[in-house]
Design a protein around this nucleic acid. Structure first.
Ligand SMILES: Nc1ncnc2c1ncn2[C@@H]1O[C@H](COP(=O)(O)OP(=O)(O)OP(=O)(O)O)[C@@H](O)[C@H]1O
Length: 715
DNA sequence: TGTCTCGGCATTTTT
DNA sequence: TGCCGAGACA
């Protein structure tokens, strides 16, 4: 059995899979079989007699988790029950579901996704009498999230704060955390953070989980953040059974706090760590590897490694320069059709990869026109549609009466005469007494709010509605509960009144929600899944060409990969261009995109691209210049005279703007950046016609920008 | 309280 | 471009 598991592996892969139990790190490039090795290691542990329930395998998405669990089962048979294969977030959520006290939560606790967290932050900022212009909830949410990724709690955040602005942000963070606790809720980052804290401070619970998970395995290790590293360390200690696989060149989540250096410090953090490298790529032709390697070699911060393939030389990448994004989309559709018809390629073996979700629309249109089946991964998530969120909010309030964000959402949906005034009075009274809105209403009645009798009647009616539904909650299955909510609130009538045209689609969504609820055993597990399912996990449509972002493409592989929108400002993204480190992350992202291809790589760009109204004339991506010329075959749409003119004008004006940017800032200026908040200009370095600005932000540290590109306000 | 219009602003990327 | 929040009015 053990030998069998090693049969179709190369010697290094075997060495990793059968390494003695203890810390193991597999460090290897794209397509070298890291995921395969990790899956095999799980099977190997099981075959060696380890209990399934003693194994925790971490993947990057829920979908990858499902596939890995499936794969393990096919390797070892049914005795894989009790094995946990999930994302960090899902694993921690499950632990907290079993032991809410581990995170200081009460049973029924809610998971706050980005939207919930943003709403709660906005309310917190308002309650502190701060201006939401100076403290944009989105930006603050980012800062809080980055802090939590580093396990920086409000106290430490306050200690590290410099100046009034940062102290105010710290205050917001502290109140936000208090509001979460009051609402019996945890945001995404808390799922990890609370578990880490619980394991560190509750020895009896920690003991339970350490005994339970003797083996922890982590895929895509380069994208784990410090909190997640701490979680692993809490479970396995310095010399336990930890098996991590990763590739620093595929680190594409530093923007949300991932710490790829965790890969490089593995040997310091774990005693007796064994490090295995894999060098053979089993996915791509040498042409594709040559292209990918040439691009990634341009990164300065990098740890070079060898990678070879025995899959033949292959064909060069095809490159097309389009007039605009519609021309690009049509050309892609035509090319894809050729692969399907003449090349005999299966549509599910073709992917079109873009940088941002917004780029998918022209492609969807062109594919529809051409009659090519396709599916879009991601985009607007199912669980983010309004009607779905409304109904989920009802269920959340039933599971967790203290969930004020959910309550605020449904208080007057459908309309029931509870207006702004009533809501504000209720929120203020609840905040004053330090309790949730519903518990206040239940404990003290609506009278304490000092409202008109009409307002009181409306509120009373709402509480009665929730109580009626609550009585059903414990007796009925989640899907039946959805029916009850829809019926009791006349929700369908509400949707029809709102917009009869979209009604049909919304009804379909409700039916789908009901169907997915029918699969869940109980309300809590249903709500948990709804909160944690990501866009990438959603399987839409049976088969067809896959349209997806480069981030969503990580870990996947296709025969044919088309990367579109290879222009400065698109890929690399404008927001990244000003920051040298961010450009390196963009380059890694492009590396990830290219290395998804087995045999065929197609690269396109557009000379003109509409970007909310205005046309933009972006030069081709710098990444295209980094490709070896002999591995690229180029065709281009004819250049229209008007386009060329506009392009040169655009370039000239960019230079003029760059000159103008030179004198604007001096060292010591306090500035405000939409993403990083307030900072101080530390240095101004002349770079050609432009200046480079070094700005120190709290929470985000020092960042470098080009003066002509970065958008700053005086603080 | 509810509805309408205007203006500002935003889109990276995602668990 | 389209969404959301703020403010004016019925
Ligand atoms: N020893 C092997 N023999 C044959 N095929 C292999 C071998 N090892 C891996 N492969 C195949 O190579 C491909 C890439 O493997 P896998 O996805 O595990 O690589 P990876 O290192 O995780 O890739 P990436 O990091 O780029 O996502 C898969 O199709 C896998 O089946």
């Amino acid at each position: 059995m053990l030998e069998e598991l090693l049969e179709d592996l190369n010697p290094s892969q075997r060495e990793a899979v059968s390494a003695p139990i203890g810390p193991v790190l597999v460090l290897a490039g794209a397509g070298s079989g890291k995921t395969r090795v990790l899956t095999r290691r799980v099977a190997w542990l099981l075959a060696a007699g380890e209990r399934p329930s003693s194994i925790l395998a971490i993947t990057f998405t829920n979908k990858a988790a499902g596939e890995m669990a499936e794969r393990v089962r096919s390797l070892v048979g049914p005795n894989a029950d009790g094995l946990w294969v999930s994302t960090f977030h899902a694993a921690c959520a499950r632990m907290l579901r079993l032991h809410p006290e581990l995170g200081g939560l009460r049973s029924g606790w809610s998971i706050y996704d980005q939207d919930d967290a943003r709403r709660l932050l906005e309310r917190t900022i308002r309650r502190l009498d701060l201006d939401t212009k100076r403290f944009p909830p989105r930006a603050i949410a980012q800062q809080v999230s980055l802090a939590k990724a580093r396990l920086v709690d409000p106290e430490r955040f306050t200690d590290e704060a410099e100046g009034l602005y940062e102290r105010q942000v710290a205050m917001v963070y502290r109140s936000y955390q208090a509001a979460l606790a009051e609402a019996n809720a945890a945001d995404f980052d808390d799922l990890i953070g609370l578990v880490v804290e619980g394991l560190a401070t509750r020895p009896e619970l920690a003991e339970h989980w350490r005994r339970r998970f003797r083996h922890v395995l982590i895929d895509e290790y380069q994208d784990a953040n410090p909190a997640q590293h701490a979680f692993v360390a809490e479970l396995v200690g310095r010399s336990g059974s930890v098996f991590a696989v990763g590739d620093v060149d595929q680190s594409i989540y530093a923007f949300r706090g991932a710490d790829p250096s965790g890969v490089l410090t593995f040997e310091e953090r774990f005693d007796g760590a064994k490090v295995v490298t894999l060098e053979q790529n089993y996915r791509s032709t040498n042409a594709i590897l040559g292209l990918a390697n040439a691009v990634i070699a341009k990164n300065r911060r990098r740890y070079a490694k060898h990678l070879f393939s025995e899959l033949g030389e292959g064909t060069p990448a095809r490159r097309y320069q389009a007039t605009d994004e519609r021309d690009e989309a049509r050309w892609v559709a035509a090319t894809v059709r050729e692969f399907l018809q003449r090349g005999g390629v299966d549509p599910s073996e073709i992917a079109v990869i873009f940088r941002t979700n917004a780029q998918s629309r022209p492609l969807e249109e062109a594919f529809s026109e051409a009659g090519i089946p396709f599916r879009v991964v991601g985009g607007v998530r199912f669980y983010e549609r309004r009607e779905v969120r409304d109904l989920l909010a009802y269920l959340r309030v039933l599971a967790n009466p203290d969930d004020d964000v959910a309550l605020a959402r449904i208080l007057n949906v459908p309309r029931r005469g509870i207006g702004r005034g009533t809501e504000e009075a209720l929120q203020a009274a609840a905040a004053l007494r330090g309790r949730s809105m519903l518990s206040l209403l239940r404990a003290e009645g609506v009278e304490v709010l000092g409202l008109t009798s009409r307002q009181e009647r409306a509120l009373r009616g709402f509480v009665e509605l929730i109580d009626r539904l609550g009585a059903l909650a414990s007796l009925h299955r989640p899907s039946e509960l959805i029916d009850a909510v829809v019926a009791e609130t006349s929700y369908l009538e509400h949707l029809n009144e709102e917009d009869p045209i979209t009604l049909e689609g919304r009804l379909e969504n409700i039916a789908e929600l009901r169907a997915s609820a029918a699969e869940a055993d109980d309300l809590e597990s249903f709500l948990e899944r709804a909160a944690l399912v990501s866009a990438v996990d959603e399987v839409m449509g049976a088969s067809g060409v896959t349209l997806l972002t480069a981030h969503a493409a990580k870990g996947l592989e296709f025969d044919v990969v088309v990367v579109v929108g290879l222009e400065e400002g698109v890929f690399p993204h404008v927001r990244a261009i000003v920051d040298a480190e961010a450009v390196e992350e963009e380059r890694r992202l492009f590396y990830v995109a290219m290395t998804r291809a087995r045999t065929t790589l197609v690269l396109t760009s557009a000379r003109r691209r509409a970007s909310w109204g205005e046309p933009l004339y972006n030069p081709p991506s710098r990444f295209l210049d980094e490709l070896p010329a002999d591995l690229v075959a180029t065709t281009a749409a004819p250049v229209a005279v008007g386009t060329a003119c506009a392009e040169s004008i655009q370039r000239a004006s960019a230079v003029v703007e760059a000159r103008a940017a030179r004198s604007e800032w001096v060292v010591g200026d306090r500035v405000f950046h939409a993403r990083y908040g307030e900072g101080t200009i530390r240095r101004v370095v002349p770079r050609g016609v432009d200046d480079e600005l070094v700005i120190a932000f709290h929470g985000a540290g020092e960042r470098r920008f080009f003066a002509s590109m970065v958008k700053l306000r005086r603080a």
